[in-house]
């Protein structure tokens, strides 16, 4: 009986979280087009529905009914599973994101689908696996552009995962846990009554490094070397069309939302309200607000910065970002040691 309720609550939470994430993905594409348009003195999509609000649905339907082309000479099996390998890690990470304060549903704990004690590492493990989808997709397409995109992506994701990992170790030292629920709970409350106890105020360098690494990790401009349109047509998904292309697209935006959620949880206090008198607003609204702010930042830098060269990207990752995060880690460790004694 107990197990039955457990399964039901888990499925309920999974459904709610997954639908929210997929809706966010859909409207993220809309928001991206709109915000970019405003930044470029345009209006963006206006035709489908009022102010183009139904545009994501139209796009989804279009992709669903498009012809599915497998190029000649492609490895059919790997070509088919690569988008799936790409998509699953992007969605699976949301299982450990605490979306609101803990509550009880049918006698089961809610608020997060699975409170793993290694939740953070779990997300990182699957982010690394997402790179396989990109590389294999690029390789199986039997196309030079796709192969180059895949190789670039592999090098980029591995390089920036290191910097990303180093940047969050400081947060782990501060909160003393790998569980995202504990990390969020450690950030409730305020200092002096008006500064929220968020890690971003203790780890500003780490936050900056994390955001830069996250942009590179999700292959977004200005670090979108794997799909650089002007050089590689579309990079690793050049040969993809229809639903398979949609899967890659979903994975890219899902990853963006995931790293934004993670940044909110690690550095911006997750579902905690910034000040006590604002806590009447529910936790998931705060998390959504913080995530959307970061997503807006993603679009913002896309609208501002030109694409960097590949050697610049690698140089920045290895020679700037990793040393900076290492020094930050050293300083944080010293600080935590002194504070605890």
């Amino acid at each position: 009986m107990e197990i039955g309720w457990m399964v039901i609550t888990a499925l309920l939470q999974i459904t709610v979280v997954l639908i929210t994430v997929l809706l966010t993905v859909a409207y993220m594409t809309y928001a991206e087009r709109k915000v970019l348009s405003f930044m470029q003195d345009r209006l963006g999509p206006m035709e489908v529905g009022p102010y183009g609000l139904l545009q994501p649905i139209a796009d989804g339907l279009k992709l669903f009914f498009k012809e599915d082309i497998i190029p000649a000479g492609a490895n059919k099996i790997i070509f088919s599973i690569a988008p799936i390998i790409c998509l699953i890690p992007a969605l699976i990470g949301f299982a450990v994101i605490p979306y609101t304060e803990g509550f009880t549903l049918f006698g089961m704990q809610g608020g997060v689908i699975a409170d793993l004690n290694v939740g953070l590492l779990y997300i990182f493990a699957f982010a690394g696996v997402g790179a396989y989808g990109v590389i294999l997709g690029g390789w199986a397409s039997n196309s030079k552009y796709a192969l180059l995109g895949g190789l670039r992506s592999a090098a980029q994701i591995i390089s920036y995962e290191l910097a990303m990992g180093f940047s969050i170790v400081g947060v782990l030292l501060l909160s003393g846990s790998l569980s995202l629920v504990s990390i969020t709970q450690a950030q409730s409350g305020t200092w002096f009554g008006f500064i929220p106890q968020w890690n971003v105020f203790l780890q500003p360098v780490a936050f900056g490094a994390y955001v830069i690494a996250a942009v590179a990790e999700t292959n977004r401009l200005p670090f979108d070397m794997p799909e650089a349109e002007s050089e590689l047509v579309a990079g690793f998904f050049t040969e993809y069309s229809g639903m398979r292309f949609a899967f890659f697209f979903l994975a890219e935006y899902g990853n963006m939302i995931l790293v934004s959620c993670l940044a909110s949880v690690l550095f911006l206090g997750g579902y905690n309200a910034p000040l006590p008198f604002l806590s009447f607003i529910p936790g998931f609204a705060w998390l959504a607000l913080k995530t959307w702010a970061l997503l807006f930042f993603f679009i913002w830098i896309r609208g501002t910065f030109p694409r960097v060269r590949f050697d610049q990207l690698m140089k920045f990752g290895w020679k700037v970002l990793i040393p900076v995060t290492l020094v930050n880690l050293l300083v944080t460790a010293l600080g935590v040691y002194i504070y605890n004694n």
């Binding site: 982010a127 696996v129 590389i135 190789l151 591995i158 995962e161």
Partner: peptide, 13 residues
């Protein structure tokens, strides 16, 4: 899976 095997794949390609 995330680091070493990706490098294998890299080299293979």
């Amino acid at each position: 899976a995330g680091a070493i095997l990706v490098l294998y794949l890299f080299v293979l390609m």
